[in-house]
C-alpha cells in the first residue's frame, strides 16, 4: 500500500523576491504535472500548504513556486536560502482541460497571487502555440511592485497579448490603472470560440463572470482555479469540500457551471 502522505525532500535551487511580499522558490526536481494541478509543499516543523507550480510543465530540471508570506508555512519558506530542503507531495487535482482548450481562443484572467497556475498554463500555450487561436492574458496587481510576472512579460508578449493593470499606480508607472474587468474592452472576443481561465480573488472572478456572461460566453467555457484550505490532498480530511465537490480531487479547476450553485 502506497503511503500518499509521505513527502519527498527537494532542494531549493534559487530563492528570490518577486515582489515585496512574494518569493520565488525554484525547486530542483522534475515534476510531472498538468498546469492547474497543485502540490503540497512543506517544511518539517511547520507543516504543509498547497501551491500551484508556476513554471512550464515541460521544464525537466526544476519547478517554481510563488510564495506569498501569509501563513505559517509560507512565512517559514521565506526564511530559507539556496540549498535548503523543503518537501513536496503531489501533484494533486485535475489541472486545466487542455484538450478542450485546443483550437479555441484563450482568455486568461488573473489577479495578485492567483498567477502561478496561469503562468504555467501560459508556458504550455506558448509551447503549443499553433494549437490555439488568439491568446490573451489580463493580469491585475494592487500596485506595480506586486506584478509577479515582470520577468516573463517581454518573452510572453511575443506569442500572447499580455495586458497589465494596477489598482494604485506609482509615479513611474506608465501602464493601465483600474480593475482587470476593464481590460476586456481591449480584447477581440468571439464568444462562441473562446474559453476563459481565471484564478484570483473571489470578487474579481464574480465580476468577470458577469461581464463574460453578458457578452455571450457560457459558464461551461469559463474555468476557475479554486483556493481552499487543504490538509490531505486526497479527499479525506474534508477541509476543501464545497457543495458536492472536493477541490483537491474534483478541482482545483472547475467550470463555472459546476460551482455556480455552490454556497461556500
Amino acid at each position: 500500500m502506497k503511503n500518499l502522505y509521505q513527502p519527498q525532500p527537494v532542494k531549493i535551487e534559487k530563492i528570490e523576491f518577486l515582489s515585496p511580499s512574494v518569493k520565488l522558490l525554484r525547486l530542483k526536481k522534475r515534476l510531472n504535472f498538468v498546469p492547474g494541478q497543485f502540490v503540497l509543499a512543506g517544511l518539517w516543523g511547520y507543516g504543509e500548504a498547497p501551491f500551484g507550480p508556476a513554471s512550464s510543465p515541460y521544464q525537466k530540471q526544476y519547478f517554481d513556486l510563488m510564495v506569498r508570506k501569509g501563513g505559517t508555512v509560507s512565512a517559514a519558506f521565506h526564511s530559507l536560502k539556496k540549498g535548503d530542503e523543503i518537501t513536496v507531495r503531489g501533484p494533486y487535482g485535475n489541472g486545466f482541460p487542455l484538450d478542450f482548450f485546443k483550437g479555441k481562443d484563450i482568455l486568461m484572467v488573473s489577479g495578485g497571487c492567483g498567477i502561478p497556475p496561469i503562468a504555467s498554463l501560459t508556458e504550455y500555450l506558448i509551447k503549443n502555440r499553433e494549437d490555439f487561436g488568439r491568446i490573451y492574458l489580463a493580469y491585475g496587481a494592487t500596485n506595480p511592485d506586486e506584478i509577479l510576472i515582470k520577468d516573463m512579460v517581454d518573452r510572453w508578449q511575443k506569442s500572447v497579448k499580455v495586458l497589465l493593470t494596477v489598482d494604485a499606480p506609482t509615479p513611474d508607472w506608465r501602464g493601465r490603472v483600474g480593475f482587470v474587468t476593464e481590460l476586456i474592452k481591449e480584447m477581440k472576443v468571439n464568444p462562441l470560440d473562446t474559453v476563459v481561465v481565471m484564478c484570483g480573488p473571489g470578487p474579481m472572478v464574480a465580476a468577470m463572470e458577469k461581464i463574460l456572461k453578458s457578452i455571450g460566453i457560457t459558464d461551461r467555457r469559463i474555468f476557475i482555479s479554486e483556493e481552499r484550505k487543504m490538509q490531505c490532498g486526497i479527499g479525506k480530511c474534508q477541509h476543501c469540500a464545497t457543495g458536492e465537490k472536493y477541490v483537491c480531487l474534483d478541482g482545483p479547476v472547475f467550470n463555472y457551471d459546476e460551482i455556480d450553485k455552490n454556497f461556500d
Binding site: T72, E227, R228, K229, T242, D264
Partner: peptide
Amino acid sequence: NFSRVAGGKNFR
C-alpha cells in the same frame, strides 16, 4: 477555523 485559509479568508 475549519475552512480558513492563509491570509485570513474564511469560506464558512
